[in-house]
């Protein structure tokens, strides 16, 4: 089955300006995202991984290059911290995107309620974020992103705020949700294992100015959910491969 390209990034370049100098954050970044594909972007910290997502989501402008949205897909952005509003209940938080876009109707509300129920937050729809565990908050954050039915999900280190145990469990949850909802994903992470266990393709970035250093297709035998995938026999091979590519400066 040949999958279609839904998002084409061509020679993306981003320069940040400060009064004293200019910083070339991203240089010549090109990438194709296929339908239902899961791409993970890894790289040294501070290399501008998040900037790429910010540009794709339209929050920031690019300096030159092009982003072609082939099928006019809608894009949802899941930020690093959950950013749930403390003064809104979980349901109200999840409806935020619909409210903003003026799409809050019974049908969409039901969709969100179904998502909340399916993903184990039914008993918490009227609770406030402070009453939820870190993992539940992250799930609520994902449902808020899914509420507007985006075709493409951008995730910026979505699990970095969680402790290790929760992190494994939640990445499993989120992965299943994404596959079930048939979304294409670009996920930024600094966790190599997380990237291998979740993605179809891992992009390794260089230090600033950010360029693509290597693109690695992940082919695990017996591919299933992330926790299972961590036990695949190819896992350590890919881990070493990526580890060698990343410039870590301690």
């Amino acid at each position: 089955m040949v999958k279609n390209v839904i998002l084409k990034i061509k020679n993306m370049k981003k320069i940040y300006h400060t009064p004293k100098n200019e910083i070339l954050a991203i240089d010549d970044f090109s990438l194709d995202l296929l339908d239902r594909e899961f791409i993970a972007i890894v790289g040294p910290s501070g290399c501008g991984k998040s900037t790429i997502l910010s540009i794709l989501s339209g929050i920031e402008n690019l300096s030159s290059g092009k982003v072609e949205n082939k099928k006019n897909s809608s894009i949802g952005y899941m930020l690093q911290s959950d950013n749930l509003f403390e003064w809104r209940t979980i349901l109200e938080n999840c409806l935020l995107g619909l409210e903003i876009n003026g799409e809050l109707n019974d049908e969409n509300k039901k969709y969100v309620l179904d998502l909340l129920e399916t993903y184990g937050l039914k008993d918490f729809i009227n609770a406030y974020p402070s009453n939820l565990s870190g993992g539940m908050r992250q799930r609520a954050s994902l449902i808020r992103t899914l509420a507007t039915k985006p075709d493409i999900l951008l995730m910026d280190e979505p699990f970095s705020a969680l402790d290790y145990q929760t992190r494994l469990a939640v990445s499993d949850d989120v992965y299943n949700i994404i596959k079930k909802e048939k979304k294409a994903v670009i996920m930024v992470t600094h966790d190599i294992s997380e990237a291998i266990s979740m993605a179809d393709k891992v992009i390794v970035l260089s230090n600033r100015p950010t360029k693509i250093k290597k693109i690695i297709d992940i082919n695990l035998s017996d591919k299933a959910n992330p926790i299972h995938n961590r036990k695949a026999k190819e896992f350590s091979y890919y881990y070493d491969l990526i580890w060698k590519e990343i410039d870590f400066h301690v």
């Binding site: 910010s54 989501s57 339209g58 929050i59 949802g76 952005y77 930020l79 690093q80 911290s81 950013n83 509003f85 003064w87 809104r88 935020l96 995107g97 409210e99 903003i100 876009n101 507007t148």
Partner: peptide, 23 residues
């Protein structure tokens, strides 16, 4: 980060004000 979230959801300035800044 909350402002960034509002922007990523497509909020305009008035919506950022009424739904985030004020509350």
């Amino acid at each position: 980060n909350k402002i960034k979230l509002m922007k990523s959801l497509g909020a305009n300035k008035r919506q950022i004000y009424t739904k985030l800044i004020l509350p």
